[in-house]
Nucleic acid binder design. Structure first.
Lengths: 330, 330
DNA sequence: ATGAAAGCGCTAACAT
DNA sequence: ATGTTAGCGCTTTCAT
């Protein structure tokens, strides 16, 4: 059914080489005459010829496809990241091939392998793997990989992430400035760099404001709304008082809000709330929620930049950090 | 670098045929002895052999890849759709290849073409094309295509969409039941089936409740937040009174909320608000927003089902509708 | 129960 | 300025 390069060649009365050179814009070498080029191009358009990526990929070993694996594409942070990655891919003439890990290390592994077998030119992954599992994962990839959002084993593979520590510190400081004295920390998967760094920022802000660190009000779970709900319940049961709450991700905040509403019928003014990540609708809640907005566009650009670099044979293991924006909401 | 089927064959002391048969689970024909199979499998695992999709695709004409083009992956509806499509693709051993149209017909065309040139087995598209442009678009695809969310030219290609009319009618009826007498309709791109059908539902609900249809409070724009803001401004300037507002998509609602907040400093209890689409955070707004939740999982499943069917050579042009859920919020 | 060989559509080195 | 040819890694028909 599909028309091949051979068809075009026959139709134009030239060789496949000639056609190939023309469609790949390599007629530049003045090798091909103006008129042959015209003629061939006309026929190409006429017949709607589309070179097969498969045949080409088989030869050239470039798929113009890059893989993106993330735990969840609904989470507004990853949704935006996804959107922005697609946009920069598009500008580069690439396509994004998706894989969802559901924050499950095993699934992540199989999904990444699947993408590799699809011959992606590069892999961008928001990984749930902790450092211990790294070597195994690293081994199976001959594909340029950059870790995004979550940094794995500093020093092994390139990565791009937000300034987690500074962002968390800014948000927690803002809580302090508003008079909070006991701020609970509801974290995500504790082994991930995001959680660790945000906890560090929390700690730093506490210290800066002369507040003590109390592990009784520092909880961990995973990055799901249910986990947010559960952590808040645990906190309540423990009767360790608190007047403010910092959630380390949007999803966790969602769970917290659900639980607050369930308990109070509405979102009460106390505890004060701050969160990593942002969402437009936060502007309209009855209480002012301090949030930290990540620059997904910059993250996306940086990730591609690193992939590009690796593809060009400069496999520098670089770690980039992107600034975040504090949205105070008064 | 990569290990090929020839390597495995050599290592195992068998032919490529044998290896191929084994990795494709076609040893079932008892053709291959138990022990050869074992041996080959061991070596495959040992060497981490991954057959090249390109070579295979070249032969078999199946990429196990399907394309998804949507206007925006941040919009929570499309984010969820994207997420769910990835999940069902994964279960089928397929991957999702992304393309964003930004609700621009030209971009949509080029992005769809790009996906086709990547040899996707099928195309799922939330199209911004209106009926007039259809023939052109349809022509370039020899690829099984199903339109999702937005139905193009009833009768030409398969489609899956929500019960837009019923959903809108339910939401608007709920507004009536709460005492609304003049309900404004803020639509999206008027040529799209979603807008038309939701408008129909609005109309039907009005009629059912004995309310007149007044075109002065029925506006159209596009599916962006800015458009929501502008429509609300136009409405205010026109001084055509209204006591309730129905937005035909989440994005439009976002723009409306932004404008309301800008004007009143907060979201006022009047006008009453209802919208197509849903978001978890709507639960926590200070005013009860009636929303209509689409069943993205069902949409995703249906879309794949139709693609599957077409691939199996039953190219029935089918139009599926999936029910929506009214979330009243009192 | 297994192998040889042709060929999918393309690119690129090497003629001419 | 243009053509020949040898693969890329795989599947599949046809032998054995």
């Amino acid at each position: 059914v599909a028309v091949t390069i051979a068809d075009i060649a026959r139709l134009a009365g030239v060789s496949k080489t000639t056609v190939s050179l023309i469609i790949n814009e390599k007629a530049a070498a003045t090798r091909i005459s103006r008129e042959t080029e015209e003629r061939v191009r006309r026929i190409v358009v006429e017949r709607g010829f589309q070179p097969s990526r498969y045949a080409r990929g088989l030869r050239v070993r470039r798929s113009h496809t890059i893989g993106f694996v993330a735990p969840d594409f609904v989470n507004p942070f990853f949704a935006r990241l996804n959107h922005d990655l697609e946009a920069v891919a598009r500008r580069q003439g690439c396509r994004l091939l998706l894989g969802c890990s559901e924050d499950d290390p095993v699934l992540e592994g199989s999904v990444a392998t699947a993408l590799v077998s699809h011959q992606v030119d590069g892999l961008i992954v928001a990984s749930v793997l902790d450092d211990s599992r790294l070597r195994k994962a690293g081994a199976e990839r001959a594909v340029p990989t950059v870790f995004i959002d979550r940094e794995i084993a500093h020093g092994t593979a390139a990565s791009v992430a937000s300034e987690n520590e500074a962002g968390a510190a800014a948000a927690v400081s803002e809580l302090c400035r508003r008079g909070a004295r006991r701020i609970a920390f509801l974290g995500g998967i504790p082994s991930l760099s995001t959680s660790r760094e945000r906890l560090l920022g929390y700690h730093r802000a506490l210290t800066a404001h002369g507040l003590p660190y109390d592990s009784a009000i520092v909880l961990h779970g995973d990055y799901s709304a249910e986990s947010g709900t559960q952590m808040l319940e645990r906190l309540a049961r423990a009767r360790a008082g608190f007047d403010a709450l910092f959630t380390s991700a949007y999803t966790v905040l969602e769970g917290v809000l659900a639980q607050l509403k369930r308990r109070h019928g509405t979102i009460p003014p106390e505890p004060m709330l701050a969160t990593f990540d942002d969402h437009p609708l936060l502007d309209y809640l009855p209480v002012p929620i301090i949030s930290v907005r990540q620059d997904t566009e910059a993250l996306a650009k940086a990730a591609f930049d690193l992939i590009e670099r690796a593809l060009k044979g400069t496999p520098a293991v670089e770690h980039r950090r992107v600034p975040v924006e504090l949205i105070p909401r008064v």
